[in-house]
Measured scan of single mutants.
Amino acid sequence: LKGVVVAGGVLAGAVAVASFFLRNKRR
């Protein structure tokens, strides 16, 4: 169960970083 929580956190972080980079590329 702990691994699932960690994986979810990593996935959420990756999505946040990806969206951040996409926003920067638009400018």
Results as ranks from 00 to 15, higher is better:
L1S: 07
L1Q: 00
L1V: 05
L1N: 05
L1E: 02
L1A: 08
L1R: 13
L1F: 12
L1W: 12
L1T: 01
L1D: 02
L1C: 10
L1Y: 03
L1K: 09
L1I: 08
L1P: 08
L1H: 09
L1M: 04
L1G: 05
K2F: 09
K2M: 09
K2A: 06
K2I: 06
K2T: 05
K2H: 07
K2Q: 05
K2D: 01
K2R: 11
K2E: 01
K2C: 08
K2L: 09
K2Y: 05
K2V: 08
K2P: 08
K2G: 07
K2N: 09
K2S: 08
K2W: 11
G3W: 15
G3Q: 12
G3N: 14
G3S: 06
G3A: 09
G3E: 07
G3H: 12
G3V: 12
G3T: 07
G3F: 10
G3I: 15
G3C: 08
G3D: 07
G3L: 14
G3P: 11
G3R: 15
G3Y: 12
G3M: 13
G3K: 14
V4K: 13
V4G: 04
V4D: 02
V4P: 02
V4E: 02
V4L: 11
V4A: 13
V4W: 10
V4C: 11
V4M: 09
V4F: 08
V4S: 08
V4Y: 14
V4N: 06
V4Q: 09
V4I: 06
V4R: 10
V4H: 14
V4T: 15
V5L: 04
V5G: 07
V5H: 03
V5A: 10
V5R: 09
V5Y: 00
V5F: 11
V5I: 10
V5D: 01
V5S: 06
V5Q: 05
V5K: 07
V5W: 04
V5C: 12
V5T: 10
V5P: 01
V5N: 03
V5E: 03
V6S: 05
V6H: 06
V6T: 05
V6N: 04
V6D: 02
V6K: 14
V6L: 10
V6A: 11
V6F: 04
V6M: 15
V6G: 03
V6C: 12
V6W: 08
V6P: 01
V6Q: 06
V6Y: 11
V6E: 04
V6R: 12
V6I: 13
A7M: 11
A7V: 12
A7L: 11
A7D: 03
A7E: 02
A7C: 12
A7Y: 15
A7F: 15
A7Q: 07
A7P: 03
A7R: 12
A7W: 07
A7N: 08
A7G: 12
A7I: 15
A7H: 12
A7S: 10
A7K: 12
A7T: 14
G8M: 02
G8N: 06
G8Y: 06
G8P: 03
G8Q: 07
G8W: 09
G8S: 13
G8R: 03
G8E: 04
G8A: 08
G8T: 11
G8F: 07
G8L: 10
G8K: 02
G8D: 04
G8H: 10
G8I: 13
G8C: 13
G8V: 07
G9T: 12
G9I: 06
G9N: 06
G9S: 15
G9P: 05
G9V: 10
G9Q: 06
G9L: 07
G9M: 07
G9F: 03
G9E: 05
G9D: 04
G9C: 07
G9H: 02
G9A: 07
G9K: 08
G9Y: 03
G9R: 06
V10E: 01
V10K: 06
V10F: 14
V10M: 13
V10R: 06
V10N: 03
V10L: 13
V10D: 01
V10I: 08
V10C: 09
V10W: 13
V10S: 03
V10Q: 02
V10G: 03
V10T: 04
V10A: 12
V10P: 02
L11P: 00
L11W: 09
L11Q: 00
L11C: 06
L11I: 05
L11A: 03
L11E: 00
L11S: 01
L11Y: 05
L11R: 01
L11G: 01
L11H: 01
L11M: 09
L11K: 01
L11N: 00
L11V: 15
L11D: 00
L11F: 10
L11T: 02
A12G: 07
A12H: 04
A12Y: 15
A12F: 08
A12M: 15
A12L: 04
A12P: 01
A12T: 13
A12Q: 05
A12S: 07
A12D: 01
A12R: 07
A12W: 11
A12V: 08
A12E: 03
A12I: 04
A12N: 03
A12C: 14
A12K: 04
G13S: 05
G13N: 11
G13H: 15
G13V: 07
G13K: 11
G13A: 08
G13F: 15
G13P: 01
G13Q: 08
G13D: 02
G13R: 10
G13Y: 02
G13M: 11
G13L: 12
G13I: 06
G13C: 08
G13T: 11
G13W: 10
G13E: 04
A14C: 10
A14K: 03
A14L: 13
A14D: 00
A14Q: 03
A14I: 10
A14E: 00
A14P: 01
A14H: 05
A14G: 04
A14W: 09
A14M: 05
A14T: 07
A14F: 06
A14R: 04
A14V: 14
A14N: 01
A14Y: 13
A14S: 05
V15I: 08
V15K: 04
V15D: 00
V15H: 06
V15L: 12
V15M: 15
V15E: 00
V15S: 02
V15G: 01
V15Y: 13
V15P: 00
V15C: 14
V15N: 00
V15Q: 02
V15F: 15
V15A: 10
V15R: 05
V15T: 04
V15W: 10
A16Q: 05
A16H: 06
A16F: 09
A16Y: 08
A16E: 02
A16M: 05
A16R: 09
A16W: 10
A16I: 04
A16T: 08
A16L: 03
A16P: 00
A16N: 02
A16C: 08
A16V: 04
A16D: 00
A16G: 05
A16S: 09
A16K: 06
V17Y: 10
V17A: 10
V17E: 00
V17L: 07
V17T: 03
V17P: 00
V17S: 01
V17Q: 01
V17M: 11
V17I: 11
V17K: 02
V17D: 00
V17G: 01
V17W: 06
V17C: 12
V17F: 07
V17R: 04
V17N: 00
V17H: 01
A18K: 01
A18Y: 10
A18G: 04
A18P: 00
A18R: 04
A18Q: 02
A18V: 14
A18L: 11
A18S: 03
A18C: 14
A18H: 03
A18T: 08
A18M: 14
A18D: 00
A18W: 10
A18N: 00
A18I: 14
A18F: 07
A18E: 00
S19G: 07
S19W: 14
S19C: 14
S19H: 15
S19P: 00
S19N: 12
S19Y: 14
S19M: 14
S19E: 10
S19V: 15
S19T: 13
S19Q: 09
S19K: 13
S19A: 13
S19R: 09
S19I: 07
S19L: 15
S19F: 03
S19D: 06
F20K: 06
F20S: 03
F20A: 07
F20I: 13
F20Q: 03
F20D: 00
F20Y: 03
F20C: 09
F20W: 05
F20E: 01
F20V: 11
F20G: 03
F20H: 04
F20L: 09
F20P: 00
F20R: 05
F20T: 03
F21Y: 11
F21P: 00
F21W: 12
F21G: 01
F21T: 02
F21A: 05
F21N: 00
F21C: 06
F21E: 00
F21L: 11
F21M: 02
F21V: 11
F21D: 00
F21H: 02
F21K: 02
F21Q: 02
F21S: 01
F21I: 08
F21R: 05
L22H: 03
L22Q: 02
L22M: 07
L22I: 10
L22K: 04
L22Y: 09
L22G: 02
L22F: 15
L22T: 02
L22D: 01
L22P: 01
L22N: 02
L22C: 05
L22S: 03
L22R: 04
L22A: 04
L22W: 14
L22E: 01
L22V: 06
R23D: 01
R23Q: 05
R23G: 05
R23E: 02
R23H: 05
R23I: 08
R23A: 06
R23K: 09
R23S: 07
R23F: 10
R23W: 11
R23L: 12
R23N: 05
R23T: 06
R23V: 05
R23C: 08
R23P: 01
N24R: 11
N24L: 15
N24W: 11
N24A: 14
N24K: 10
N24F: 13
N24Y: 10
N24G: 09
N24S: 13
N24I: 14
N24M: 06
N24V: 14
N24P: 03
N24C: 13
N24D: 04
N24T: 09
N24H: 14
N24Q: 15
N24E: 04
K25F: 15
K25E: 06
K25L: 13
K25V: 15
K25D: 08
K25G: 11
K25M: 15
K25C: 10
K25A: 14
K25P: 13
K25N: 13
K25S: 12
K25R: 14
K25T: 14
K25W: 15
K25I: 15
K25Y: 13
K25Q: 14
R26S: 10
R26P: 08
R26K: 13
R26T: 15
R26H: 15
R26G: 12
R26V: 12
R26I: 12
R26A: 12
R26F: 15
R26Q: 09
R26W: 13
R26L: 09
R26M: 11
R26N: 11
R26E: 10
R26D: 08
R26C: 08
R26Y: 13
R27A: 13
R27Y: 12
R27V: 12
R27W: 14
R27K: 15
R27H: 14
R27F: 00
R27T: 14
R27P: 12
R27N: 09
R27L: 11
R27G: 14
R27M: 11
R27S: 13
R27D: 07
R27I: 09
R27E: 09
R27Q: 12
